[in-house]
Design a binder for these strands. Structure first.
Lengths: 205, 205
DNA sequence: TTGTCATCTGTCACTCCCTGACATACATTA
DNA sequence: TAATGTATGTCAGGGAGTGACAGATGACAA
Protein backbone atom coordinates (compact mmCIF):
# COMPACT_ATOMS: atom_id res chain seq x y z
CA UNK A 1 0.00 0.00 0.00
CA UNK A 2 1.50 3.26 -1.17
CA UNK A 3 1.83 6.51 0.71
CA UNK A 4 -1.09 7.92 -1.24
CA UNK A 5 -3.55 5.27 -0.16
CA UNK A 6 -2.32 5.36 3.41
CA UNK A 7 -2.90 9.10 3.53
CA UNK A 8 -6.37 8.70 2.14
CA UNK A 9 -7.34 6.10 4.69
CA UNK A 10 -5.91 8.25 7.44
CA UNK A 11 -7.92 11.27 6.32
CA UNK A 12 -11.05 9.16 6.00
CA UNK A 13 -10.78 7.84 9.54
CA UNK A 14 -9.84 11.25 10.90
CA UNK A 15 -12.97 12.74 9.37
CA UNK A 16 -15.08 9.92 10.74
CA UNK A 17 -13.71 10.23 14.25
CA UNK A 18 -13.88 14.00 14.28
CA UNK A 19 -17.49 13.84 13.14
CA UNK A 20 -18.58 11.23 15.67
CA UNK A 21 -16.99 13.19 18.50
CA UNK A 22 -18.58 16.46 17.40
CA UNK A 23 -21.95 14.79 16.94
CA UNK A 24 -21.84 13.42 20.47
CA UNK A 25 -20.51 16.65 21.97
CA UNK A 26 -22.78 19.23 20.42
CA UNK A 27 -25.45 17.29 18.56
CA UNK A 28 -25.84 15.99 15.04
CA UNK A 29 -27.92 18.81 13.58
CA UNK A 30 -25.85 21.62 15.01
CA UNK A 31 -22.57 20.19 13.76
CA UNK A 32 -21.68 21.57 10.35
CA UNK A 33 -19.58 19.93 7.68
CA UNK A 34 -17.31 22.94 7.82
CA UNK A 35 -16.57 22.21 11.48
CA UNK A 36 -15.79 18.58 10.83
CA UNK A 37 -13.51 19.42 7.94
CA UNK A 38 -11.92 22.13 10.05
CA UNK A 39 -10.83 19.69 12.75
CA UNK A 40 -9.06 17.52 10.18
CA UNK A 41 -7.79 20.61 8.38
CA UNK A 42 -9.23 19.91 4.98
CA UNK A 43 -11.73 21.88 2.95
CA UNK A 44 -15.45 21.15 2.97
CA UNK A 45 -15.17 20.17 -0.66
CA UNK A 46 -12.69 17.48 0.24
CA UNK A 47 -15.01 16.21 2.94
CA UNK A 48 -17.62 15.46 0.31
CA UNK A 49 -15.09 13.54 -1.74
CA UNK A 50 -14.71 11.13 1.17
CA UNK A 51 -18.33 10.99 2.32
CA UNK A 52 -21.19 11.60 -0.04
CA UNK A 53 -23.14 13.39 2.66
CA UNK A 54 -23.18 14.29 6.31
CA UNK A 55 -25.57 11.40 6.86
CA UNK A 56 -23.15 9.01 5.24
CA UNK A 57 -20.83 9.51 8.21
CA UNK A 58 -23.44 8.64 10.78
CA UNK A 59 -24.47 5.63 8.74
CA UNK A 60 -20.97 4.32 8.31
CA UNK A 61 -21.48 1.10 10.25
CA UNK A 62 -24.75 0.47 8.52
CA UNK A 63 -23.22 0.43 5.05
CA UNK A 64 -20.57 -1.94 6.27
CA UNK A 65 -23.13 -4.23 7.87
CA UNK A 66 -25.26 -4.40 4.76
CA UNK A 67 -22.34 -5.49 2.64
CA UNK A 68 -21.63 -8.29 5.05
CA UNK A 69 -25.24 -9.40 5.05
CA UNK A 70 -25.40 -9.56 1.27
CA UNK A 71 -22.20 -11.56 1.02
CA UNK A 72 -23.25 -13.87 3.80
CA UNK A 73 -26.64 -14.59 2.28
CA UNK A 74 -25.03 -15.84 -0.91
CA UNK A 75 -23.03 -18.37 1.06
CA UNK A 76 -25.94 -19.85 2.97
CA UNK A 77 -27.18 -23.30 1.84
CA UNK A 78 -30.19 -23.10 -0.46
CA UNK A 79 -32.27 -25.54 1.57
CA UNK A 80 -32.03 -23.43 4.70
CA UNK A 81 -35.21 -21.55 5.64
CA UNK A 82 -34.72 -17.96 4.46
CA UNK A 83 -35.36 -16.28 7.79
CA UNK A 84 -32.84 -18.58 9.43
CA UNK A 85 -30.37 -17.56 6.72
CA UNK A 86 -30.94 -13.90 7.38
CA UNK A 87 -30.47 -14.31 11.12
CA UNK A 88 -27.19 -16.04 10.31
CA UNK A 89 -26.28 -12.96 8.31
CA UNK A 90 -27.05 -10.73 11.28
CA UNK A 91 -24.79 -12.96 13.35
CA UNK A 92 -22.10 -12.48 10.72
CA UNK A 93 -22.37 -8.75 11.29
CA UNK A 94 -22.07 -9.29 15.02
CA UNK A 95 -19.04 -11.51 14.51
CA UNK A 96 -17.43 -8.84 12.37
CA UNK A 97 -17.96 -6.33 15.15
CA UNK A 98 -16.33 -8.69 17.63
CA UNK A 99 -13.31 -9.14 15.37
CA UNK A 100 -12.84 -5.46 14.75
CA UNK A 101 -9.91 -3.30 15.82
CA UNK A 102 -10.09 -1.33 19.06
CA UNK A 103 -10.57 1.83 17.00
CA UNK A 104 -13.55 0.36 15.20
CA UNK A 105 -14.90 -0.89 18.50
CA UNK A 106 -14.95 2.67 19.79
CA UNK A 107 -16.70 3.78 16.64
CA UNK A 108 -19.43 1.15 16.99
CA UNK A 109 -20.16 2.31 20.51
CA UNK A 110 -20.16 5.96 19.49
CA UNK A 111 -22.51 5.30 16.60
CA UNK A 112 -24.88 3.42 18.88
CA UNK A 113 -24.86 6.32 21.32
CA UNK A 114 -25.47 8.67 18.41
CA UNK A 115 -28.49 6.64 17.31
CA UNK A 116 -29.82 6.76 20.83
CA UNK A 117 -29.54 10.55 20.90
CA UNK A 118 -31.00 10.89 17.40
CA UNK A 119 -33.58 8.18 16.77
CA UNK A 120 -34.37 9.66 13.39
CA UNK A 121 -30.94 8.57 12.20
CA UNK A 122 -32.12 4.97 12.43
CA UNK A 123 -34.79 5.83 9.91
CA UNK A 124 -32.25 7.57 7.71
CA UNK A 125 -30.28 4.35 7.81
CA UNK A 126 -33.34 2.51 6.55
CA UNK A 127 -33.67 5.08 3.78
CA UNK A 128 -30.05 4.73 2.78
CA UNK A 129 -30.29 0.95 2.86
CA UNK A 130 -33.49 0.74 0.87
CA UNK A 131 -31.66 -0.44 -2.23
CA UNK A 132 -29.88 -3.14 -0.29
CA UNK A 133 -33.11 -4.20 1.33
CA UNK A 134 -34.72 -4.57 -2.09
CA UNK A 135 -31.80 -6.70 -3.22
CA UNK A 136 -32.15 -8.90 -0.15
CA UNK A 137 -35.84 -9.32 -0.92
CA UNK A 138 -34.98 -10.31 -4.50
CA UNK A 139 -32.43 -12.79 -3.29
CA UNK A 140 -34.78 -14.35 -0.74
CA UNK A 141 -37.48 -14.59 -3.39
CA UNK A 142 -35.05 -16.22 -5.83
CA UNK A 143 -33.85 -18.73 -3.27
CA UNK A 144 -37.36 -19.74 -2.30
CA UNK A 145 -38.75 -19.71 -5.82
CA UNK A 146 -41.23 -16.95 -5.11
CA UNK A 147 -42.35 -13.97 -7.12
CA UNK A 148 -41.73 -10.81 -5.06
CA UNK A 149 -44.28 -8.97 -7.21
CA UNK A 150 -47.25 -11.00 -6.02
CA UNK A 151 -45.94 -12.53 -2.83
CA UNK A 152 -45.22 -10.32 0.17
CA UNK A 153 -43.59 -13.05 2.21
CA UNK A 154 -40.02 -12.33 1.05
CA UNK A 155 -40.47 -8.65 1.90
CA UNK A 156 -41.85 -9.59 5.30
CA UNK A 157 -38.98 -11.95 5.99
CA UNK A 158 -36.40 -9.28 5.20
CA UNK A 159 -38.37 -6.58 6.99
CA UNK A 160 -38.56 -8.62 10.17
CA UNK A 161 -34.89 -9.55 10.06
CA UNK A 162 -33.81 -5.95 9.61
CA UNK A 163 -36.14 -4.83 12.37
CA UNK A 164 -34.55 -7.42 14.64
CA UNK A 165 -31.07 -6.17 13.85
CA UNK A 166 -32.01 -2.55 14.46
CA UNK A 167 -33.72 -3.27 17.76
CA UNK A 168 -30.72 -5.24 18.92
CA UNK A 169 -28.26 -2.53 17.96
CA UNK A 170 -30.17 0.39 19.37
CA UNK A 171 -30.53 -0.75 22.99
CA UNK A 172 -32.52 2.36 23.83
CA UNK A 173 -31.98 3.93 27.20
CA UNK A 174 -29.01 1.86 28.26
CA UNK A 175 -25.54 2.88 29.15
CA UNK A 176 -23.32 0.72 27.01
CA UNK A 177 -19.60 1.20 27.34
CA UNK A 178 -18.41 -2.20 26.28
CA UNK A 179 -18.62 -3.86 22.91
CA UNK A 180 -19.21 -7.25 24.47
CA UNK A 181 -22.26 -5.82 26.17
CA UNK A 182 -23.59 -4.54 22.86
CA UNK A 183 -22.98 -7.73 20.90
CA UNK A 184 -24.34 -9.74 23.78
CA UNK A 185 -27.56 -7.75 23.66
CA UNK A 186 -27.80 -8.21 19.92
CA UNK A 187 -27.40 -11.95 20.33
CA UNK A 188 -30.01 -12.01 23.05
CA UNK A 189 -32.43 -10.17 20.79
CA UNK A 190 -31.89 -12.75 18.08
CA UNK A 191 -32.65 -15.55 20.50
CA UNK A 192 -35.93 -13.88 21.43
CA UNK A 193 -36.73 -13.42 17.77
CA UNK A 194 -35.99 -17.02 16.93
CA UNK A 195 -38.40 -18.18 19.58
CA UNK A 196 -41.16 -15.87 18.38
CA UNK A 197 -42.00 -17.36 15.02
CA UNK A 198 -43.94 -20.45 14.16
CA UNK A 199 -41.64 -23.08 12.70
CA UNK A 200 -41.80 -23.05 8.93
CA UNK A 201 -43.58 -19.70 8.71
CA UNK A 202 -41.03 -18.43 6.21
CA UNK A 203 -41.75 -21.33 3.87
CA UNK A 204 -45.55 -21.14 4.09
CA UNK A 205 -47.66 -21.63 0.99
CA UNK B 1 -65.66 27.51 9.56
CA UNK B 2 -64.66 30.96 8.40
CA UNK B 3 -63.35 32.04 5.04
CA UNK B 4 -59.86 32.22 6.43
CA UNK B 5 -59.73 28.60 7.50
CA UNK B 6 -61.33 27.41 4.29
CA UNK B 7 -58.74 29.25 2.23
CA UNK B 8 -55.96 27.73 4.31
CA UNK B 9 -57.27 24.24 3.87
CA UNK B 10 -57.65 24.84 0.16
CA UNK B 11 -54.09 26.07 -0.19
CA UNK B 12 -52.83 23.15 1.85
CA UNK B 13 -54.53 20.60 -0.35
CA UNK B 14 -53.54 22.45 -3.52
CA UNK B 15 -49.90 22.32 -2.46
CA UNK B 16 -50.20 18.64 -1.61
CA UNK B 17 -51.80 17.73 -4.92
CA UNK B 18 -49.47 19.87 -6.98
CA UNK B 19 -46.51 18.27 -5.25
CA UNK B 20 -47.70 14.69 -5.66
CA UNK B 21 -48.37 15.27 -9.35
CA UNK B 22 -44.99 16.88 -9.92
CA UNK B 23 -43.22 14.15 -7.97
CA UNK B 24 -44.84 11.48 -10.14
CA UNK B 25 -44.27 13.36 -13.38
CA UNK B 26 -40.67 14.43 -13.06
CA UNK B 27 -39.34 12.69 -9.98
CA UNK B 28 -39.08 13.59 -6.32
CA UNK B 29 -35.51 14.84 -6.26
CA UNK B 30 -35.75 16.98 -9.37
CA UNK B 31 -38.91 18.74 -8.21
CA UNK B 32 -38.11 21.94 -6.34
CA UNK B 33 -40.17 23.63 -3.70
CA UNK B 34 -40.20 26.71 -5.90
CA UNK B 35 -41.95 24.73 -8.64
CA UNK B 36 -44.59 23.37 -6.28
CA UNK B 37 -45.25 26.79 -4.83
CA UNK B 38 -45.34 28.20 -8.36
CA UNK B 39 -48.18 25.92 -9.42
CA UNK B 40 -50.30 27.06 -6.48
CA UNK B 41 -49.11 30.63 -6.94
CA UNK B 42 -47.67 31.18 -3.52
CA UNK B 43 -44.14 31.98 -2.43
CA UNK B 44 -41.67 29.34 -1.32
CA UNK B 45 -41.73 30.91 2.11
CA UNK B 46 -45.44 30.28 2.35
CA UNK B 47 -44.93 26.69 1.30
CA UNK B 48 -42.79 26.10 4.36
CA UNK B 49 -45.51 27.58 6.54
CA UNK B 50 -47.82 24.78 5.42
CA UNK B 51 -45.31 21.95 5.30
CA UNK B 52 -42.22 21.90 7.45
CA UNK B 53 -40.19 20.34 4.67
CA UNK B 54 -40.38 18.88 1.19
CA UNK B 55 -40.33 15.43 2.80
CA UNK B 56 -43.30 16.32 4.94
CA UNK B 57 -45.44 16.39 1.79
CA UNK B 58 -44.46 12.93 0.69
CA UNK B 59 -45.02 11.62 4.19
CA UNK B 60 -48.43 13.15 4.56
CA UNK B 61 -50.30 9.84 4.81
CA UNK B 62 -47.77 8.48 7.24
CA UNK B 63 -48.31 11.24 9.78
CA UNK B 64 -52.02 10.71 9.54
CA UNK B 65 -51.68 6.96 9.98
CA UNK B 66 -49.49 7.28 13.04
CA UNK B 67 -52.00 9.49 14.79
CA UNK B 68 -54.68 6.91 14.19
CA UNK B 69 -52.49 4.13 15.50
CA UNK B 70 -51.71 5.98 18.71
CA UNK B 71 -55.34 6.79 19.37
CA UNK B 72 -56.42 3.27 18.56
CA UNK B 73 -53.88 1.66 20.86
CA UNK B 74 -55.23 3.57 23.82
CA UNK B 75 -58.69 2.17 23.18
CA UNK B 76 -57.67 -1.48 23.02
CA UNK B 77 -58.48 -3.66 26.03
CA UNK B 78 -55.55 -4.08 28.39
CA UNK B 79 -55.77 -7.85 28.47
CA UNK B 80 -55.32 -8.13 24.71
CA UNK B 81 -51.92 -9.38 23.57
CA UNK B 82 -49.95 -6.28 22.48
CA UNK B 83 -49.12 -7.47 18.99
CA UNK B 84 -52.77 -8.24 18.40
CA UNK B 85 -53.59 -4.72 19.57
CA UNK B 86 -51.10 -3.20 17.15
CA UNK B 87 -52.46 -5.19 14.23
CA UNK B 88 -55.89 -3.87 15.17
CA UNK B 89 -54.40 -0.40 14.97
CA UNK B 90 -53.08 -1.12 11.50
CA UNK B 91 -56.56 -2.24 10.56
CA UNK B 92 -57.89 1.04 11.93
CA UNK B 93 -55.58 2.82 9.51
CA UNK B 94 -56.89 0.66 6.68
CA UNK B 95 -60.48 1.38 7.70
CA UNK B 96 -59.73 5.08 7.69
CA UNK B 97 -58.40 4.78 4.15
CA UNK B 98 -61.56 2.98 3.08
CA UNK B 99 -63.74 5.71 4.57
CA UNK B 100 -61.82 8.55 3.02
CA UNK B 101 -63.07 11.00 0.41
CA UNK B 102 -62.41 10.31 -3.30
CA UNK B 103 -59.76 13.04 -3.23
CA UNK B 104 -57.92 11.38 -0.36
CA UNK B 105 -58.27 8.05 -2.11
CA UNK B 106 -56.41 9.47 -5.10
CA UNK B 107 -53.76 10.81 -2.78
CA UNK B 108 -53.24 7.44 -1.11
CA UNK B 109 -52.69 5.80 -4.47
CA UNK B 110 -50.34 8.54 -5.61
CA UNK B 111 -48.30 8.31 -2.43
CA UNK B 112 -48.02 4.56 -2.82
CA UNK B 113 -46.81 5.01 -6.38
CA UNK B 114 -44.37 7.62 -5.15
CA UNK B 115 -42.97 5.21 -2.58
CA UNK B 116 -42.58 2.59 -5.25
CA UNK B 117 -40.56 5.00 -7.41
CA UNK B 118 -38.53 6.23 -4.44
CA UNK B 119 -37.97 3.41 -1.95
CA UNK B 120 -35.82 5.69 0.16
CA UNK B 121 -38.89 7.69 1.05
CA UNK B 122 -40.13 4.72 3.06
CA UNK B 123 -37.05 5.03 5.18
CA UNK B 124 -37.57 8.76 5.51
CA UNK B 125 -41.03 7.93 6.79
CA UNK B 126 -39.45 5.74 9.43
CA UNK B 127 -37.13 8.59 10.35
CA UNK B 128 -39.99 11.05 10.63
CA UNK B 129 -42.02 8.58 12.66
CA UNK B 130 -39.24 7.65 15.04
CA UNK B 131 -40.75 9.70 17.86
CA UNK B 132 -44.11 8.05 17.38
CA UNK B 133 -42.52 4.65 17.27
CA UNK B 134 -40.80 5.33 20.57
CA UNK B 135 -44.10 6.37 22.08
CA UNK B 136 -45.73 3.18 20.84
CA UNK B 137 -42.93 1.18 22.44
CA UNK B 138 -43.47 3.02 25.71
CA UNK B 139 -47.18 2.36 25.56
CA UNK B 140 -46.75 -1.34 24.79
CA UNK B 141 -44.26 -1.63 27.63
CA UNK B 142 -46.62 0.13 30.01
CA UNK B 143 -49.55 -2.06 29.05
CA UNK B 144 -47.58 -5.25 29.49
CA UNK B 145 -45.78 -4.16 32.62
CA UNK B 146 -42.36 -4.32 31.06
CA UNK B 147 -39.33 -2.09 31.30
CA UNK B 148 -38.36 -0.94 27.81
CA UNK B 149 -34.86 -0.16 29.05
CA UNK B 150 -33.96 -3.75 29.78
CA UNK B 151 -36.51 -5.64 27.73
CA UNK B 152 -36.37 -5.54 23.95
CA UNK B 153 -39.67 -7.31 23.44
CA UNK B 154 -41.80 -4.15 23.29
CA UNK B 155 -39.47 -2.67 20.68
CA UNK B 156 -39.60 -5.89 18.69
CA UNK B 157 -43.38 -6.00 18.82
CA UNK B 158 -43.68 -2.45 17.52
CA UNK B 159 -40.91 -2.94 14.98
CA UNK B 160 -42.58 -6.01 13.53
CA UNK B 161 -46.00 -4.36 13.39
CA UNK B 162 -44.64 -1.31 11.61
CA UNK B 163 -42.72 -3.50 9.20
CA UNK B 164 -45.92 -5.36 8.43
CA UNK B 165 -47.76 -2.14 7.71
CA UNK B 166 -45.02 -0.85 5.44
CA UNK B 167 -44.74 -4.06 3.48
CA UNK B 168 -48.49 -4.11 2.99
CA UNK B 169 -48.64 -0.52 1.84
CA UNK B 170 -45.71 -0.65 -0.53
CA UNK B 171 -46.85 -3.48 -2.77
CA UNK B 172 -43.61 -3.26 -4.75
CA UNK B 173 -43.78 -3.82 -8.49
CA UNK B 174 -47.52 -3.88 -8.80
CA UNK B 175 -49.84 -1.70 -10.79
CA UNK B 176 -52.42 -0.54 -8.31
CA UNK B 177 -55.15 1.75 -9.56
CA UNK B 178 -57.85 1.00 -7.09
CA UNK B 179 -57.97 1.69 -3.38
CA UNK B 180 -59.84 -1.54 -2.71
CA UNK B 181 -56.93 -3.39 -4.28
CA UNK B 182 -54.48 -1.61 -2.01
CA UNK B 183 -56.43 -2.11 1.20
CA UNK B 184 -57.11 -5.69 0.21
CA UNK B 185 -53.39 -6.31 -0.12
CA UNK B 186 -52.72 -4.70 3.20
CA UNK B 187 -55.33 -6.95 4.82
CA UNK B 188 -53.84 -9.98 3.15
CA UNK B 189 -50.42 -9.08 4.47
CA UNK B 190 -51.80 -8.85 7.98
CA UNK B 191 -53.35 -12.29 7.66
CA UNK B 192 -49.98 -13.72 6.65
CA UNK B 193 -48.35 -11.92 9.55
CA UNK B 194 -50.88 -13.20 12.05
CA UNK B 195 -50.19 -16.77 10.97
CA UNK B 196 -46.42 -16.33 11.26
CA UNK B 197 -45.97 -15.92 14.97
CA UNK B 198 -46.10 -18.43 17.73
CA UNK B 199 -49.18 -17.89 19.89
CA UNK B 200 -48.29 -15.92 22.99
CA UNK B 201 -44.86 -14.85 21.71
CA UNK B 202 -45.64 -11.23 22.56
CA UNK B 203 -46.28 -12.13 26.18
CA UNK B 204 -43.27 -14.38 26.64
CA UNK B 205 -41.28 -14.22 29.82
C1' DT C 1 -69.82 50.99 7.19
C1' DT C 2 -65.81 51.68 9.45
C1' DG C 3 -61.95 51.02 12.28
C1' DT C 4 -59.21 47.92 15.02
C1' DC C 5 -57.00 43.68 15.65
C1' DA C 6 -55.19 39.21 14.52
C1' DT C 7 -53.31 36.50 11.14
C1' DC C 8 -51.57 35.35 6.72
C1' DT C 9 -48.34 36.41 3.04
C1' DG C 10 -44.28 38.12 0.31
C1' DT C 11 -39.68 39.86 0.26
C1' DC C 12 -35.15 39.88 1.79
C1' DA C 13 -31.14 38.20 3.77
C1' DC C 14 -28.96 34.43 5.58
C1' DT C 15 -27.00 29.55 6.80
C1' DC C 16 -26.19 25.04 5.48
C1' DC C 17 -25.84 20.98 2.33
C1' DC C 18 -24.06 19.55 -1.83
C1' DT C 19 -22.10 19.77 -6.82
C1' DG C 20 -19.46 21.05 -11.06
C1' DA C 21 -15.41 23.20 -13.00
C1' DC C 22 -10.82 24.47 -12.99
C1' DA C 23 -6.16 25.21 -11.48
C1' DT C 24 -2.59 23.61 -8.44
C1' DA C 25 0.09 20.56 -5.59
C1' DC C 26 1.57 16.11 -4.77
C1' DA C 27 2.68 11.00 -5.23
C1' DT C 28 3.87 7.55 -8.58
C1' DT C 29 6.40 5.45 -12.16
C1' DA C 30 9.64 5.25 -15.84
C1' DT D 1 14.47 14.02 -13.30
C1' DA D 2 10.47 14.22 -16.31
C1' DA D 3 5.87 12.80 -17.34
C1' DT D 4 1.59 11.26 -15.60
C1' DG D 5 -2.25 10.61 -12.77
C1' DT D 6 -4.64 11.67 -8.69
C1' DA D 7 -5.90 14.48 -4.60
C1' DT D 8 -6.84 18.95 -2.97
C1' DG D 9 -8.37 23.89 -2.64
C1' DT D 10 -10.88 27.66 -4.50
C1' DC D 11 -14.72 29.52 -6.61
C1' DA D 12 -19.35 29.88 -8.20
C1' DG D 13 -23.89 28.32 -7.71
C1' DG D 14 -28.44 25.71 -6.81
C1' DG D 15 -31.69 24.07 -3.55
C1' DA D 16 -33.57 23.40 1.30
C1' DG D 17 -34.90 25.74 5.23
C1' DT D 18 -35.30 29.90 8.73
C1' DG D 19 -35.70 34.52 10.97
C1' DA D 20 -37.24 39.26 10.58
C1' DC D 21 -40.01 42.74 8.93
C1' DA D 22 -43.59 45.09 6.30
C1' DG D 23 -47.75 44.93 3.84
C1' DA D 24 -52.20 42.63 2.63
C1' DT D 25 -56.35 40.46 4.09
C1' DG D 26 -59.84 38.31 6.81
C1' DA D 27 -62.38 38.66 11.58
C1' DC D 28 -65.02 41.27 14.57
C1' DA D 29 -67.08 44.91 17.26
C1' DA D 30 -69.01 49.62 17.41
Amino acid sequence: MGLRERKKEKTRLALLDAALDLFLEQGYETTTVEQIAGVVDVSSRTFFRYFSSKEHLALWWHDHGEEIMQECLRDRPLDEPPFTSLLHCVRAVIADMRNSTPEDTDRFLKVRKLYENNPMLVGRAVARGSQTELRLVEEVARRTGRDPATDQLPALIVGFAMAAMRVGFECPGQEITDLAELTGRMEATLVVVEASFRPGWDLAA
